[in-house]
């Protein structure tokens, strides 16, 4: 009894901060969602409004595409870097993990430097073909930015999990006549699957909810965080903004919870 009273006392500060500044505000957000001219029906109306639905679907599609691309690139690269030893490997790993701490805004700026109007790609393509390739200020730029954001953390996750694999299993499969492709799909991939699912869920959730990159590239891209931001600040449409952010929060939370159910590992979205 004394021990459980003490436990409560020790967790009280964290619990108090969480309740006062997250739980209570979230409850308020739910209430504001139902406070618009349509009342509680706003929750339903948003889902059938083609404008918001399109924004939601576009965001989901973009996030799925980023997740798949990040998993493929990081899967191969991470496996390679963990298994092979060659001069310059440590430097390569350092270069790939350095951008881990860049916030979305900075990533957006880097995308502009690469694919913007005065970007590197524009200069190179003009020199090669005479046409300037510019795609930073739309979905293409956003895809590039989220991929940039996702690659470092996914590579590190893959490397950490490849280290735990037992190479003798692959050896055994090869001895039994398995082709490299079969070794990959039947031995390596199943063993890495929990890590890939967890890392993929994080990529997906971060791409769904990220705001900084889209904000830097253009405030007119039709993705959900930008839609919410515009509804809130430009149109003062608080109830719609509240409903949309609750839907967004639910989607990212579900993705992470589902990944955890499937793999039994802790997953949380990155910054």
């Amino acid at each position: 009894m004394r021990s459980s009273a003490r436990s409560l006392l020790l967790t009280l500060p964290a619990l108090a901060v969480f309740s006062a500044f997250w739980l209570l505000p979230m409850a308020r957000l739910c209430a504001v969602g139902a406070s618009g001219p349509q009342g509680i029906a706003a929750y339903w109306l948003v889902l059938v409004d083609p404008r918001y639905m399109r924004s939601l679907l576009a965001t989901v599609a973009l996030s799925v595409a980023v997740t798949l691309a990040a998993l493929v690139v990081s899967g191969f690269t991470g496996f390679f870097l963990q298994r092979q030893r060659f001069p310059g490997r440590t430097l390569l790993v350092a270069l790939l993990s350095f951008p881990l701490a860049f916030p979305g805004v900075v990533v957006g700026f880097l995308v502009i430097l690469l694919a913007g109007r005065q970007g590197l790609l524009a200069a190179v393509t003009e020199w090669l073909t005479g046409d300037r390739l510019v795609f930073a200020y739309g979905m293409g730029g956003l895809f590039m930015g989220y991929l940039y954001f996702s690659i470092p953390r996914t590579i590190l996750t893959v490397m950490a999990n490849v280290e735990k694999l037992d190479p003798s299993l692959e050896e055994a499969a090869r001895t039994l006549g398995a082709s490299p492709l079969q070794v990959m799909t039947d031995v390596i991939l199943p063993a890495l699957m929990p890590a890939l699912i967890a890392a993929g869920a994080i990529c997906f959730a971060t791409s769904m909810g990220a705001f900084g990159t889209a904000f830097t590239l253009a405030t007119q891209i039709d993705v959900l965080p930008i839609t919410i931001y515009n509804e809130f600040t430009n149109y003062a449409n608080f109830s719609i903004a509240a409903v949309l952010s609750l839907i967004l929060g639910l989607v990212t939370w579900l993705a992470l919870a589902l990944a955890r159910q499937l793999t039994g590992t802790q997953a949380a979205a990155a910054a």
Binding site: L24, P25, L29, G209
Partner: peptide, 24 residues
């Protein structure tokens, strides 16, 4: 408790920020 404390990371910062502004 552990699950609860992770919620502000699992839910996008934009949603948390709107909730804070509308409340305080």
């Amino acid at each position: 408790l552990e699950e609860l404390l992770v919620l502000p990371v699992a839910v996008p910062g934009l949603a948390t920020a709107l909730a804070l502004i509308l409340t305080y």
